[in-house]
Each structure stands twice: as structure tokens, then as C-alpha cells.
Write a protein that binds this DNA or RNA. Sequence first.
DNA 1: CAGAGATAGTTTATTTTTGAACAATTCAGA
DNA 2: TCTGAATTGTTCAAAAATAAACTATCTCTG
Lengths: 163, 163
Amino acid sequence: MAGARKPAALEEPGLEQVGLGALEHSAGLMLRIAQLTAFERFFALFGESEIKISEFTVLMAVAENPGIRQGVLADVLKIKWSNMTKLVRTLEERGLVARHVPRHDRRSVVLSPTDEGRRQIEKSGEKMYRLDREALSMLTDAEHDQLIALTRKIAGWPPISER
Amino acid sequence: MAGARKPAALEEPGLEQVGLGALEHSAGLMLRIAQLTAFERFFALFGESEIKISEFTVLMAVAENPGIRQGVLADVLKIKWSNMTKLVRTLEERGLVARHVPRHDRRSVVLSPTDEGRRQIEKSGEKMYRLDREALSMLTDAEHDQLIALTRKIAGWPPISER
DNA sequence: CAGAGATAGTTTATTTTTGAACAATTCAGA
DNA sequence: TCTGAATTGTTCAAAAATAAACTATCTCTG
């Protein structure tokens, strides 16, 4: 019927006989394809919802770091500042996070979760983690841990043990 | 001066004291952050150029699979069909790939590289792979292999050994 | 302390991506 | 064979992401 024929299910596209030759050793490309696959699967599981996954991620990050500057959060999550502005405004309008301009640096904006925001996390947090893991259910627990270790290293974050 | 303060160099954003709590165990999120980091680094190394990386990737994939249907390639590379249409047209206009409608199925379009396309690959292929590896230079060779194995598995591709 | 330059965030124009509607086939079953 | 559904690809309008210009504030240096 439409352009993309797959009904947003969890099927295999099935590389079949394609094969990308040397391209398959490009970790950058593979990283991207894997990421898109993972998100496709996640969204298929997650379905429609009020809050976007990017918004929920920011909300959770804010709850974990109350008083964080919005630009710092943007950099950590690799969200562009101009997008973060819009995203945070949405969260504020929904009463999930509060923006506050600190007296000592009136250029900046720091964020904290509202009670409603905390409630939202309480309500949906567990589901997020469950679906995130399920989207990657082709990996064993050991492989899952390996993936987290590798991605941390790529992102330049310290290994879990050192924190 | 501008929104993004970093001069597109290879600096550490330096997660510093942030820490995302449980979110750091979301492999989906980590996968995304790692992918964006890797691409950021790749582009910083790669600089300006005639051909976009997505275009070059398609060109190489076509050269590896002459006669492949454009929709199949789109699915494998996780490119939307509507984007693939535009992308392939660009490659055709530059004389790098040829489009051909096979007689037995006149709905479809199959692709093959032109001589000029092959020449382009000859010219730039090595550089691509080098920079791709360099963008992930924080990984050891063993980790790099691990990453490729994991991403293949996520994408639903067979392990290298089985091919 | 004046002022140049840097930093934080927002706004706006542009580009890119997406999704839905569409046309042209092909397929499959009555 | 005929007809309704499915496949393949394109087009186009809407949504999202990006980059560049801009405002406000802060910092540092002479």
C-alpha cells in the first residue's frame, strides 16, 4: 500500500543475499544501522503515547540531576541547544520540569523536576526500561553489558566501575 | 558566540559530574549517544566534501551489489524509500550510478555503478575506512571487532563466520 | 572600570526527514 | 480472465532538525 511495506512489526528485513562487503567492517555505519534497528523495535513495542521518548529521557535525566544547566544536559545527551530549548519548553508547559534562572549567573537556566514530573517517572519509568531491554532481546545479558561498556567508551564516559 | 560552543574539534564534552543514573543502563539511549559521538568525530575528521557520506555509502553498496533493487538497499541501510529516491537521483545526476527498470518487473528500479562511480570509490574508499576507524580510535581492535559483532546481531545480520 | 570577547540560551530561516497520498505495475484467487 | 489486493517507487505537504544570527549576561584584561 504505502512506501514502507512493513507494518511496524518486529520482523526481520532479512539482509538475505545482500552483503555489503568491506562496508560491513565500517563500525560507524554498523553503529548507525544497529541504532536505527533498535529504535524501530522500541517504537513498535512502545506504540503511541502522550510523551515522546526524547522528552521522557530529558525528564529522567533532570530528575537524576536536579539543578542541572540545560546546555550541559544537551551536550551530554547530544541534543542540539536549539532543540533543547523547544523540548524543555514542552516539558515545562506540561508541568513536568521547572526552569529556574540562578541569581549568580543570570544567563543560564537550570532545571528540576516537578512533583508531577516525578510522578510521571514513577508511572512510566519501569516500562521504558523493560521495553528498552526487550527491543534488544536478541542480545544475551552478557552481550548487553558488553554493548553498554563499548558505547560508554565511545561516548567518552568513564567505565561503570570507576564511578 | 554561537549556540554550540565547541569548534567541531575532537574534545571531550566531559560528562564531568553529570551521571544519568539508571538511564546509563538503557542500551538504546547509549547506542544513540555513541552513534552521534562517532559521527561527530567522523565529520570533524572528514571535513567538507563534494559527496555526502550517505551518498558514498549507497554508492559503495551498489558497487558491491550490482543490479540490486533500490528498495531492498534502502531497507538494508535503514534509509526511508522517499529519501532513497532523492539520494539515488543525486548519484545518477552526478553520473556515479545508473538506474535501470528491468523488463520482468517494470515497477522496480535496479542500480549499478558507472565507471565513474567505480573510479570515485577507488579514489575515496580507503580514506573513508581509515577515518571511520579513526573516529572510533578510543576502541582497541578487539573492542572494534566486538562492536561489529554486536551491531550485526542487533541489525539481525548473520555472524561474519557464517557468511 | 571600560570594553572586547566569551558564554548561555533563544529565535528564525533553511534544510532535511518523514509520512501520507499517489501512480504504475504485478500477483493471486474467484 | 478479471478484479481486488499487494508491491515498488515517487511526489508533495507537514514536521523536525540544523545552522546562523541575535540578546543578555558574565569575565578578563589593560
